[in-house]
């Protein structure tokens, strides 16, 4: 099933230059992560009602923690799990460079979904838009031939798990309150 879906999506690459350009625009290490990070910056400053803004700023601090957590979980999983990239075993149309680390779970998907899921827990609308970016990022990774669909799904699972774990991280609430307090004193929160 995973292989079938991979074939279906990767076969889209290499036929239409506009689609290849779009996939390359999304698949690289810069655009989607930066867009999600910009969303966090926007979230921090958005709104002019004090309590709503505090909730969003709390989400920003938690999202940063969730991303670090997701990264850590993927690194730990990679110590015990190694799945070769699709281009190592199959004849694929590759639209990206050849990463050498394990393909499962997808680290970019884990990070992107950690961003989106954490924000979704606090701000539904922002979270849904960020989730869309994360989903397109994951989809582009499959079409570009650097991940199997299962890798992206597993990565998304890790990201969502990290978002929930970050909510329960001891001391994070206190840290967030401190950061927001300092920000307010500096007129930036």
């Amino acid at each position: 099933m995973d292989l079938l879906l991979f074939r279906l999506l990767n076969d889209l690459a290499g036929h239409w230059p506009w689609l290849d350009d779009m996939v390359r625009f999304l698949v690289n290490d810069y655009v989607a992560p930066t867009a999600l990070s910009l969303a966090l910056l926007g979230l921090w400053f958005s709104g002019s009602e004090v309590y709503g803004r505090r909730r969003r700023q709390f989400a920003v601090v938690q999202a940063i923690a969730a991303v670090l957590l997701a990264n850590g979980i993927v690194k730990l999983l990679n110590l015990v799990l190694f799945r070769p990239r699709p281009f190592a075993d199959l004849d694929v149309t590759l639209l990206f460079y050849r990463p050498t680390d394990s393909t499962l779970p997808s680290n970019p998907a884990a990070v992107a979904f950690a961003f989106a899921a954490t924000v979704y827990l606090h701000e539904r609308t922002w979270g849904l838009w960020m989730g869309l970016v994360a989903a397109l990022f994951g989809l582009a990774r499959v079409i570009a031939g650097v991940h199997y669909p299962l890798d992206v799904v597993a990565g998304a699972g890790v990201g969502i798990l990290a978002a929930h774990l970050a909510q329960r991280l001891p001391g994070l609430g206190r840290l967030a309150r401190l950061v927001i307090y300092v920000g307010r004193r500096l007129l930036l929160a």
Binding site: R24, N28, D29, Y30, P33, N71, F96, Y97, P99, N107, P108, V111
Partner: peptide, 9 residues
């Protein structure tokens, strides 16, 4: 951009 670059962190 399409070569291995800086790590995510």
């Amino acid at each position: 951009i399409f070569r291995p670059g800086p790590a995510g962190l």
